[in-house]
Simulated assay, not measured.
Amino acid sequence: MTHATTSRPALSLGRLALFAALGLLALFYLTPLYVMVSTSLKSMDELRQGSLLSIPSAPELNAWAKAWSSACTGTDCNGLKPFFLNSVAMVVPAVLISTALGAINGYVLTKWRFRGSELVFALMLFGVFMPMQVVLLPMSQVLGQLGLANSLAGLVLVHVLAGLPSTTLFFRNYYAGLPDELVKAAMLDGAGFWQIFRRIVLPLSGPILVVTLIWQFTAIWNDFLYGVVFSGADAKPITVGLNNLANTSSSVKEYNVDMAAALIAAAPTLLVYVLAGKYFVRGLTAGAVKG
């Protein structure tokens, strides 16, 4: 008896060239990250003697420890830890609130339309394209009137309002693809507004929830403008702390500490994309940005 054998098709020259080009591009984009990591693991003596691309001969975490707990950010020498904790305290509620409100808005604008709902959505859509600098003065006045100026609560409010147009857009476009018959059938069974949302719409919102959470987390964590404008001395986020650390003058510029600090500031967003990046792509293809 003869067995049919299947062989994999040989790689064509074009495919090999494509893989080589992709490999070179990946190497090009990963080189800065490698330089940051390797520099953060070197001592200052090794940095002075070695080259930028050399592998650390004796890796150490002293620069990381100093960046976290004792590096000077202006006149304060407590490292990035207070700024990191401020960002966590700001990002978690801001992301959850803006995502929840965006889901409700999208639900209303697609399944509970009212006269003028399209106009309301169009007006909210202006917020997606509005430059951040436009709202600085009116927002500062509003925060002052509410007694939230220079506080973490004020920063949370600013990011919720700034993120609401984007979250509404995401959920509105996603919910537009859900069959209206689901809502109508639930209404015939006596379900109300919140029951339909909790039991029918929300369980179907997994892909867009992941997209919105990642989008909002990245945008808020990496924001510098709102953080530097609306935060007080004890409420500055990690981006402001990193900027202060990098611009603090000293007799010796410690590049290893600066690189470690930059990696500490970027670690949460990198971790989120590594762990949930594939779900982000799936959510986008499931209708997150389709009109």
Rank of each mutant, 00 (worst) to 15 (best):
A122C: 06
V160P: 02
S69Q: 11
N62Y: 14
L13E: 14
N173K: 04
V183S: 04
Q133S: 12
G144H: 08
G102F: 00
L13F: 12
I97L: 12
D180P: 02
R113C: 06
G241M: 03
I97K: 07
T75A: 08
L53T: 09
Y255P: 00
L16Q: 13
W194K: 08
A100R: 07
L213Q: 05
W64Y: 15
L30M: 12
L85I: 15
V108L: 12
K42V: 11
G227V: 04
L284M: 13
L52H: 04
V37A: 13
V160H: 12
G206T: 13
A186P: 01
S249I: 14
S98K: 10
G154D: 05
P179A: 02
M132G: 15
V37T: 10
W194G: 12
L148N: 05
L125G: 15
W221P: 01
E60V: 12
V160K: 08
W112D: 02
T110N: 06
L13Q: 10
R198N: 06
A10S: 13
V156D: 11
N247L: 10
L47T: 12
S117N: 08
V156F: 07
L52A: 08
K184P: 00
L101E: 04
A288M: 09
S43E: 14
I200D: 02
K290H: 06
I55R: 08
G144C: 05
Q216Y: 01
Y107R: 02
V158D: 04
L188K: 11
E181Y: 04
E254V: 10
L152W: 02
P179I: 02
T285A: 11
P32A: 03
M44G: 02
L137M: 13
F217Q: 03
P56Q: 10
G14L: 09
T6R: 14
L80E: 07
A21S: 14
G79F: 10
L161A: 15
A65C: 08
L24C: 11
V201F: 14
A176P: 05
N78S: 14
S205A: 09
V210L: 13
L263F: 06
V92T: 10
L101S: 00
R115W: 13
I196K: 00
G50V: 05
K253H: 15
K81S: 13
M139Q: 13
L101F: 06
L152V: 08
S250V: 05
F217L: 09
R282W: 06
A265Y: 12
A191Y: 04
I220C: 02
G23Q: 06
N243Q: 09
A235R: 08
P138Y: 14
V289M: 13
L61D: 04
V135H: 03
D223Y: 03
Y255A: 00
A191N: 00
K236H: 05
L146T: 06
S57L: 12
F171G: 01
N173R: 11
T239P: 10
P9V: 12
R8W: 11
L270M: 15
L263N: 02
P32H: 00
H159A: 01
D223C: 04
P9W: 01
S43W: 15
V210P: 00
G74L: 01
V201S: 04
L143E: 10
T248S: 12
A185Q: 08
I214H: 01
M124V: 01
T31A: 15
